[in-house]
């Protein structure tokens, strides 16, 4: 096993809910609850899940954009939670983020070259004299013309703006880039271009991605490994192939069955979940998925399942379910 570039251990992010006359904390929204995972250098690890499952919060917490409530975040073995404010500022050049909304992620009052110049100036990665050259280079790397750096963000399309966002992230030579729904706001053809750009950059620059998305098609295209989250917990983690070919957790199965198949002659059993996602303020006891799970039994209501692997699963494939074996048994006959 390679040593991971990044590791999150028992990461928690709770948001207090205040109310009452004295504005006391009355409850906690457990947006991310005890999440652990590692990212290996050079890979793309994706987090998928529906809205509100805590995937974006995880991404923000590991960058300490929102400070985690508890847990450890290790970057190259160093715990970022223990860093002082100024040490953290320096460390930030190693980890960058690309945001979802290309219209909100660029300051409307700065020219592109100012945006990139500022990024380099903050981290002092490139001496002032060499920055114009580096800006030209960055523009070309992300597929824009160097002279376009003289323009303001409003003069670009959504896809172009996202490229500028990528250029800004790259300007400080990061090792890890968190892509927080980085292509979700783009239309499909632009999505493909940006995804391919991200893939190319990964190869050329040795980047590691944490790719957060709700779009399984996109995740399938770009990831090496995939984490599935539900209500602030990891329910399944596996290599891309294992996850898409033989999902083990009932939630993952339901999620995957929702991907449309681009072949009208094929049909697939669609697993439709009953009810809504429970409130993260008051999550269900035991397994958080038991209220909607077709396989739930009494043990699911009381005991929280751990992420585990069984004999017929790859070592790297883990699911948090009490009934992995039972479900595999019943489904053996009906695998599409």
């Amino acid at each position: 096993m390679t040593t991971p570039l990044f590791e999150a251990k028992n990461l928690q992010k709770y948001f207090p809910v205040k109310g009452g006359i004295l504005n006391r904390t009355q409850a906690q929204v457990k947006a991310v609850d005890d999440v652990s995972f590692a990212i290996n250098p050079g890979e793309t690890l994706s987090i998928v899940g529906e809205s509100g499952c805590g995937k974006s919060t995880t991404g923000r917490a590991i960058l300490r954009l929102d400070d985690p409530t508890d847990g450890e975040i290790l970057f190259e073995g160093q715990n970022l939670m223990e860093l002082s404010k100024s040490d953290l500022r320096q460390k930030r050049k190693e980890m960058q983020i690309i945001f979802q909304d290309p219209y909100a992620s660029l300051n409307p009052r700065q020219k592109v070259k100012q945006i990139l110049d500022e990024a380099m100036a903050i981290q002092g990665v490139v001496p002032k004299a060499k920055r114009p050259e580096r800006i030209r280079e960055l523009m070309e790397v992300v597929g824009l013309r160097p002279e376009q750096a003289e323009r303001y963000p409003f003069q670009f399309s959504g896809g172009q703006r996202q490229r500028i966002g990528i250029a800004r992230a790259l300007s400080v030579d990061p090792k890890l880039i968190v892509c927080d729904e980085a292509v979700s706001a783009l239309d499909v053809s632009t999505q493909a271009q940006v995804l391919n750009l991200l893939k190319k950059l990964q190869k050329d620059l040795d980047l590691t991605y944490l790719f957060i998305s709700h779009d399984l098609g996109v995740v399938r295209h770009i990831s090496d490994r995939v984490i599935v989250m539900y209500l602030g917990k990891i329910v399944e983690i596996a290599d891309k192939k294992d996850l898409f070919d033989s999902p083990r957790h009932p939630y993952t199965r339901a999620l995957l069955s929702a991907i449309p198949i681009p072949d009208p002659s094929k049909t697939r059993e669609r697993i439709v979940l009953q009810g809504d996602v429970p409130s993260p303020m008051n999550p269900p006891s035991g397994c958080r998925f038991h209220t909607r799970c077709p396989f739930a039994t009494d043990i699911c209501k009381t005991e929280e399942p751990e992420l585990r692997s069984t004999t017929f699963m790859n070592e790297t494939h883990k699911a948090a379910c009490h009934h992995i074996e039972k479900i595999a048994e019943t489904e053996k006959t009906s695998i599409v």
Binding site: L65, I122, Q123, G165
Partner: peptide, 22 residues
Amino acid sequence: NIEYVEAIRALGARDGKIIFQH
């Protein structure tokens, strides 16, 4: 909380720079 302010924060800018320039 607009993303361009967060982006500058993620780049490691000081509070003074974030507040007065962005």
